[in-house]
Design a protein around this nucleic acid. Structure first.
Lengths: 358, 358
DNA sequence: GTGAAAGCGCTAACAT
DNA sequence: ATGTTAGCGCTTTCAC
């Protein structure tokens, strides 16, 4: 089934069919349009993408590179992006980078050669140096959860939440409950979003007249930089380390994400401690399992649906770029049962029935 | 960067370069080979896919259609499939069907037009009628978790666990613990894998001299057929219904998957009941969160890594098809703390440290 | 062992 | 308002 056959069937030339296919219907008389449309329908014709792409150099595909779809947060985000893409007739090519710059580079090259319209990149690595040349060659790159950094190619746009605010919300929730010994638990901090959250943690502590430097700290064991799937393992390890050492352990935890938070809760349980009673835990992302967990996890929610459509929109934009544009959305704290005041009494919190803090 | 320029730089014709690119190195003298390879390296040449595909009609892409990557099980599977694909230089195009036949059909058509080598389909719908014509036109279709059914196009191959065995393992674990009132909790049973699990449930009951028909039943509320993301909601609703009615509730639950099981646990908690004490719950899939949950969830594990590589392999096979081939792998029961004997005493179970039943 | 040439299906100047 | 035409970059007979 080619455009030629359709043209023959409709008694017109291929270019007229092509014009119809590309929305230039103003260049033909309605009767012609109708004839072609009938021919297309009858023959069940669908244009060949490879030919189209070879000719125009463009595709209807965007690439999505996430650290790991094994992490439900990225799964959920991928799904939202796909919904947005579907609505505008676009495909999504999904890749897992495991936050490995080499692998990321390889995927980006691959996607670029595939002719993707743009790439939504979710790994938040400290620099984009490994991708700079491709961006300079014209790749439209959108970084998700990684605001533009000094040194980034200026063409890159970004969509993320304000991680500083997120870290701040999580932490001040704990200080307001009366916690004075807090620990920020994360795997490697070598990701832009992570340092943002950590800065928010420090800011909130200072706002509560607490000294960040005086807090019990935990650092992911050397060697293997944990991937996203191992996030839970990180949390579990942290709980073991923090509660079995000689240092007085914290009463509240801010975790880098929900998987880590849930792993931490698991680690607490390993030691017979109770989340929400002995220790308060705040997660980040508000994945679906936060609500399901026992106890339901207090978490900082990211508006992923909105973020997905914004990311897609940016990834598809043609040339009217606004270089270096960063969109920062506001996260919201969802208070559930994993946090309470350190004495055990729950502090009064005003929240709607979905748990969103007012 | 085109093949012409490489040819010019190496002082040969495009066809010789093409021969090299396609592994036909036996057709040229080693010196030529080397010269071309140097030219390719120096110019940083990479073949244009669109042109290649237009010419050959083939791609290096496989399609993957899952019910929803929002469900961590599918996220994990997608990741495994990608790993397998990466190893053989293949791309994966990921789609969420939400188990909607129309959407599925649309995606399959889309992928087919995109020239994918094959499609791995994970939705387990009762029939493949909506895809029969495309399969007949040559689409290489692999159904995951959906053994071939009577009426399927014979070209379709399948990879799945033996769901009957899985349902049996889950259920007999409970009967061996002494449970006599069991309920199978699932959303719509209109999926092949689901009926298999349910049959295993019945078989195990009969093996324990219990009458399936005498068990308390629960059926997903009418109207909206729950999608995969709503699986947790299904479980929660089931817990509410089963434990607030006039019928004597079950002491053990076999859930269709872990998300539903976790939702069920949440629902039990809503009513002040304790999983593993008041009620035993077995899930299915062994997603990463099963292990993290409180209490850790007993679940039927699917060997997804193995299943992913098998699926990919089948999807990529050229013409040497073995029509109707079904690969059935054996699931294994992972016993954790969400199951115990109805009296509250834990029955002795022999398991290795990872919880795998011996 | 290597090259010339045709053409995959489509689009977009450029005619008319 | 519609048609003619020249490729996009590659593969693959078929010559030599």
């Amino acid at each position: 089934m080619t455009i030629q056959q359709v043209a023959a069937a409709a008694g017109v030339s291929p270019s007229t069919v092509s014009n119809l296919l590309n929305g230039r219907t103003n260049r033909m008389v309605p009767a012609t349009k109708e004839r072609i449309e009938r021919a297309i329908a009858e023959l069940g014709y669908r244009p060949n993408r490879a030919a189209r792409q070879l000719r125009t150099g463009r595709t209807q595909t965007v690439g999505l590179i996430v650290p790991s779809v094994g992490n439900p947060f990225w799964g959920a985000f991928a799904r939202e992006l796909e919904v947005a893409a579907l609505a505008v007739g676009c495909n999504v090519l999904l890749c897992n980078s495991e936050r490995d710059p080499d692998r990321e580079r390889r995927y980006v090259e691959e996607l670029w050669e595939d002719g993707v319209r743009g790439i939504v990149l979710c790994s938040s690595l400290p620099t984009l140096d490994h991708l700079a040349d491709i961006v300079r060659r014209g790749l439209r790159l959108v970084t998700f959860d990684r605001p533009a950094q000094a040194g980034d190619p200026e063409e890159v746009v970004s969509v993320s939440i304000n991680n500083h605010v997120g870290g701040f919300l999580a932490t001040s929730h704990l200080t307001e409950l009366g916690h004075e010994r807090l620990t920020f638990v994360s795997g490697s901090l070598a990701a832009v979003n992570r340092t943002g959250r950590f800065r928010g943690f420090c800011t909130a502590l200072e706002g509560a007249d607490l000294d960040p430097a005086a807090m019990p700290t935990w650092t992911a064991g050397g060697g293997a930089p944990f991937g996203d799937v191992e996030a839970a393992q990180v949390g579990r390890q942290a709980a073991h380390d923090l509660f079995s050492g000689t240092v007085e352990p914290p009463t509240g935890i801010v975790a880098i994400n929900d998987m880590t938070a849930l792993g931490f809760c698991r680690g607490l349980r390993d030691q017979g401690l109770h989340v929400g009673k002995d220790v308060s835990v705040v997660g980040f992302d508000d994945i679906i399992l936060a609500e399901l967990y026992d106890p339901p996890l207090t978490s900082v929610r990211q508006p992923i649906s909105r973020m997905a459509s914004l990311s897609l929109e940016e990834a598809l934009k043609e040339d009217d770029r606004e270089p270096g544009r960063s969109v920062l959305l506001r996260p919201e704290l969802v208070v559930r049962d994993s946090t309470a005041s350190p004495t055990g009494a729950t502090a009064p919190v005003v929240a709607d029935e979905d748990g969103v803090l007012q």
